[in-house]
Amino acid sequence: MSLPNETLVAVLDGLPASVLADVARVSRRLNAVAERLLYSAISITDLLSGSSPVPARTLQCCRSILSRPHLVDTIKRLHIRWHGDFRSLSPHALAAACTNVGIALQTLVALEGLDIFLGPANLANVPHNPVHAIERILGSCALPSLRFCSLGAEWSKDVRPYTDILPAFLSTACRLTHLKLSDHHQPILALSHGALPALFYFRGSPYTAASLLPGRPVQYLALIGQDSDVSPENLRQIALTSAPLRSLDLSAMQVRPILLRHISIHLAAPLEILKVRLALRHTLHYALSGIALLAGLSSVLANFPHLLCFDLSPTEIDGGRQANLTEEASLCADWSRACPSLTRIVFPSGNQWRLAGDGSWVLSSSSF
């Protein structure tokens, strides 16, 4: 075969993994090219149960990585997902599996994207082992090329908390721009002052955000958990970013109007995008009264001097109720008078309205 490797990569790139695996068995040369494509982005999912108590696919992947040291500079993305019921699992087997994943991860010095969700692994109590399941993986790892990182496991109030292993690991990721921590709910993430100098996006609990954001250039923030956790004290800390916070995503929590008012006091000035899942069951009866009652948000929106987009699409409504375009158009006019910077509004119906050049609001897309 006279084709250069670059051409073969272009031909094979984009093929399904099952096809690439077949190609790799054709010849040594095709194996070398296909193998690099197969291992450039690895995605593994394991379903744990009493009959399958260990993440077999993950462990097989780790063995494959360790047996192919020539590929360590090829592997750029690693995605691991575990799911299952912790009550039927072996805590010691899961702890050993985490250790094995960590051994393989240590070799991936060129890794740019890491996404690990360990499902029930941290719920299974390992006696005399206070280390979080994620930290059993990260303990001896340093990934200086990492840009995107998502870590977590299923969470409850009585599970093992994170220790200083997590901040020690994050401190090695000097190029990290995107960070998601789905189960870190502790009041402090003890990072050194100069850690994560390039962090641009964060998704996690209000407590973690309040500890992490001060002094860092985070411009996009997504909060998880309960809206009662977003206290004025947390918001004051979140506001101390070194770059203006442009976007706030509250679609993962039920938001009451009092939280929007707190945000308007502490974070309003820099925000350009606000995405909210309103707790209508606490404040409005959408199906009975219509969205005209949302006009009450005008007084809050008046405190957002730079807001460009107000997105209410995550808000849950009665699925049988059709959108009232007249009411939506009226709200667009009311809100834009209160907040003249607005140019786009997305309603719970999914309808998107945009400000036209003549100052009128037009329906630009619809969910119906």
Rank of each mutant, 00 (worst) to 15 (best):
L297R: 00
I224P: 00
P127G: 07
L114G: 02
L179G: 02
H184T: 11
P232L: 02
R354L: 12
L20N: 02
I116Q: 01
G320D: 08
R256N: 13
V9N: 09
T208M: 07
G320T: 11
R277Q: 08
R160W: 00
A41P: 14
R344H: 07
P69R: 06
P127T: 05
L166G: 07
C98L: 04
S242E: 10
D318W: 07
V300M: 03
L294Q: 01
S64E: 13
W82R: 12
L284N: 05
A209V: 06
A93T: 11
G320F: 01
V101S: 03
I317V: 15
P130L: 09
S367W: 06
L8A: 07
I224A: 06
H266F: 12
C141M: 03
R160D: 10
H266W: 09
L38A: 01
V19G: 01
P167C: 09
A239P: 00
C332T: 10
S40N: 15
G139I: 07
H185R: 13
L12M: 10
F200D: 12
H132R: 01
T107E: 02
L221S: 02
G14M: 09
Y207W: 10
S182R: 14
V131D: 07
L312W: 02
W155E: 10
S49C: 08
R28V: 14
L37G: 05
T99W: 07
S51R: 15
S182D: 01
A222K: 00
S231A: 05
W361P: 08
A173V: 06
S51Q: 13
L8W: 10
S205C: 06
I188S: 11
C62L: 03
S140C: 12
L143H: 08
G225Q: 04
R216K: 09
A302K: 06
L176Y: 01
P55D: 03
F117E: 05
T283P: 08
V19I: 15
T7Y: 05
A295Q: 12
L89T: 09
P232M: 04
I273A: 10
L248H: 00
H282T: 15
C332Y: 02
N122W: 00
P206W: 00
L293S: 14
A133D: 02
I265F: 03
L308W: 04
V33A: 03
R68A: 13
A198T: 13
P55M: 02
L108H: 03
W353V: 05
A329P: 07
